[in-house]
Every structure is written in C-alpha cells, then in structure tokens.
Amino acid sequence: MKNDSCCSNLNPTQENNVIKPPQRLVIAWFDYVKMFFNWLFLFRKKPYTATPGLYFTGDEYDKKAPLVVTCNFLSTVLLLCRRLKGLNARLLILDTNGINVWCSSGKGKFSAEEILSKLNKYDREIISDSEEIEIILPKLSLSGVKLSELRKNKIKPVIGPVYAKKLKHYLEHPPYKDCITDTVHFGLKARAYTVVPTAMQFSKYAILMGLFLLILDNIFKAGFHWQVIPIAIAISIVYPFLFPWLPGKRFAVKGISLAALFSLYDVYLFTQGSILVSIMIFYIAFIFGTSIFLALSYTGNSAVSNYSRVKKEIVSFLPLSALFYIAAIVFYLISGIYR
C-alpha cells in the first residue's frame, strides 16, 4: 500500500476543499481491485473515484509537461496512469462525481467552469502571466466543455484523442493539433467490455422475474419454470456480442431478431413432444418480452444510441414488451390447467 497514490488517498469527499501540491500518480494494488468492481458494476450509482486535483507522471513535476484534463472515475485515471508510463505529463483530475468523461460532460459535470475552477486552485503551479496555458481535452468531453469559454480565460484548449490508448503517442509528438478525425468505435472489444456489466445489471431483473413466477406457482400451482432466469441472463450476454449482426436498425428490432433465434430451441422441444403447446407459447412470449426489454435497456450501455430515436423506440416497443409478458402470464396459467 503506497500512501502517495492519488487513488489510494482517503475519502475523496474530504479532500475536495484541501488544495494539495501536485502529486505523483502512482497505482496501488487495491486500486486494481476497485477498478475490477467498477467494471463489474459499471452502471451502479456509486463508483470508486479518484481524488480531484493536479497530478503528474514521471519523476518530478514539470511545469512544461503537457497538461491533460480528465474525470475522477477511478478506472479512467488508472488507465491513463498506465498509458502514460515513462512520460512526463500533468493530469488535472476534475470533480465529476466519479462519472466517466463522456457521461459527465453530458451531465454538465465535465465543463469549462469546472476546468477553470480547478486551474484557479492551482494557479501557482500552472498559471503564469506571460504564457497561454495549453490543456489537452479528451474529445468526448466536448459535449460539456465550451471551448470559447476557455479561450476567453487565456486557456488554449486542444482536442485530444477519443481513446486513452492513443494518448501517449499523441503527447510524444508536439506541437499538439486537434484530433479532428478521431471518432468513437463501438466494435467487438467495446461491446465485450459491456457484456459482464450488462449481465450483472440485468440479473436483478431476471431474478425478480423468477421470484414472480415462484409466487405465481405458489398461488396457482402451475409449476416453477426456473429456466426463465438463465434465459434472461443468456439474452443479456448474447445481445451485446451479436449487436451489429442482428437484423434491424433499431435496438428493439434487433431484440426481436434475437428472440426469434432463442425461440427456435423452444419450438424444437415442442416438436420433440418435450413440452406442452401452452408452455411453448409461455416461453416464446417470455423470450420476446425479455429480449425487447433488454434491447431497450442496452441503449444506455452502448455508445451509439440517440435520444430522439430511443424515445420513439420506447413508445413503440416498451408496450409491446409488456404485452408479451402479459401473454406469458396468461399461457403460464393455462398450462397449469392442463398440468
């Protein structure tokens, strides 16, 4: 355990009002444990955070080293710390309530005001009358940062790369130019990163669905179909992987496509005489309801959803998902009669 780690500092909320001199960025082993939990519960309300402030990589604080601005989501800070190994750089960590760069800029936490406020706190270490201060902003922060606001305050903002993996190479090649052509990619690696957190997030709904069926079974004695829990979790795992290949442009239509795929096995079991027709319809209705709901909830986990389109999808497809669940309950009760 190293006390000089930014991420190992004590309660960040207590640190907010205390201005510390620039600290060297060091990772402690338990920060990786926190990072793992941040990933596992990516969509929870209270992620692990880093203490906001001014940090540096390399041996000592260098006033001429490039100044990179970032959020205080612990995982982002650790990633930067790893990527910047062996390079003299300064890192200004903003107070974004532990939210990542993109989400916090959308929520107004990663803003020009927050940057100016932090820069003012470190005026002796950063600000000088003669020079313009150059800061490198993550490209995804620009939905919250008004560049002209910074320029008005003698700050020269430079649009940095979207991804941390490109940062070291970028910083090694001054003078820094805006990364105009750098864009977001929601490829297999990015989707794979969301699989486990999505499954964790959706598991609670799957368990609730299972509990609901258990209650129905206790009342109507129609049998407890525990398989609904693994089916729901399986849908939440498969959907992100197959996302670009599932037919349809909309999230929900892709969900319907996946439901059709999952239902094939159910139909096969029926043709083999393994299940009753009412049970087959119960499972098909459940699979469609769940797959549409998962698809709609995945909008927030992806990097390609759009507010207007998601709103339209919710109006069209959330009621459809509810109707499938109602149908599932009806056929579950019917199956109890023929049991």
Binding site: S143, Y307, I314
Partner: peptide
C-alpha cells in the same frame, strides 16, 4: 440539437 440521454432508464 434535441439533446438528451439516449437511455431507456433516463427517458423513463
């Protein structure tokens, strides 16, 4: 831009 969070739970 009609700015908003493209997320089911945020919209609900």
């Amino acid at each position: 831009v009609t700015k908003g969070v493209g997320c089911l739970f945020a919209i609900i």
